[in-house]
Design a protein around this nucleic acid. Sequence first.
DNA 1: TGAATAGTTGACCAAATTAATCGGGATTAG
DNA 2: CTAATCCCGATTAATTTGGTCAACTATTCA
Lengths: 180, 180
Amino acid sequence: MRLTTKGRFAVTAMIDLGMRHQRGPVTLAGISERQRISLSYLEQLFGRLRRQGIVDSVRGPGGGYTLAQSMLDISVADIIRAVDEPIDATQCGGLGNCHDDRECMTHDLWMSLNSRIYDYLDSVNLDELVTTQLAKQAEEVAHGQAQGHKHDTRRVVGSADITPGLMHKSGQAHKTVVNG
Amino acid sequence: MRLTTKGRFAVTAMIDLGMRHQRGPVTLAGISERQRISLSYLEQLFGRLRRQGIVDSVRGPGGGYTLAQSMLDISVADIIRAVDEPIDATQCGGLGNCHDDRECMTHDLWMSLNSRIYDYLDSVNLDELVTTQLAKQAEEVAHGQAQGHKHDTRRVVGSADITPGLMHKSGQAHKTVVNG
DNA sequence: TGAATAGTTGACCAAATTAATCGGGATTAG
DNA sequence: CTAATCCCGATTAATTTGGTCAACTATTCA
């Protein structure tokens, strides 16, 4: 698992897409402008998301990107996995050719934590994030703060508490790559 | 929040330290050899951990590093925060000088997810990780596999289930190996 | 039909940032 | 004093980030 700005941009872009996919394909140019992410970088990210079957592309005028799956089925981990290829946490490449058991320990230590982080991020899906964001925007409009609103940094972190409820995608294990 | 090899090394090193801190200061040279992390890199990492008050250092012969806090009080998030300085998720630097509300939205989108990841990693403490690791080693010794044991890749991830009690999760760990 | 247009695709490249190493100092026990 | 150890600034290596450009594809419209 890796969490970098790349994953952050991908998740942000996917939320933007999720928020307006009902109205037809969403262009990268639109996401680029709304989220201030460079268009060329988005192209790169969505290329991967498309190859992973998370989004579909529609070419030509009126085209853009659409979701290839239900928002309930797209987890944050799916998005991050798609754009940020996994690091090899082992020194021995998971092939078991360690000199002794020490490298395996290094490997185990991180992997067990790693899998927990994945478990967690697999439990957060796009639908939830989009719902949260729409609710937040509705709230702003209700308070007449839609224009020129400066966000209050003291509230930012706590803002996740609007969230309806966490879902667990049980059973549906992530695409597992078993070494060897 | 960022999760990179740097954070991984730091967590691994801290577990190593946690496993033997009772016997006095632990040298970086020892951690370096056991965990196969370069000494100079460890020095850099522990410099930060020390400045964050997570470890204490003892200079001179017989010196090394000790824990500055109870293992129960050191969370994975603390460790990662110490070595991987946080990215600035905002375009406007969190200063609220955005042109309109769009950048704030970008900011919010990520921050609410970010805070959840932190919440989660804050819930996993070093004591828990060390206990898990010690239990695993004890088990290996009991099976007479202490020497030359090659780890079984199929069990790597599931091995977290020895863990005493996970707060967040409904312990259904899937058998995932995040590819090496 | 076919040209213009809106849009994606993918390869390549450069700047910026991070990761990791290196070389030399400090500090202290014995 | 000297060896074991931490400490730290500078440097190099690797990766990430983001940009440019030249196809390619589908739609629209004349």
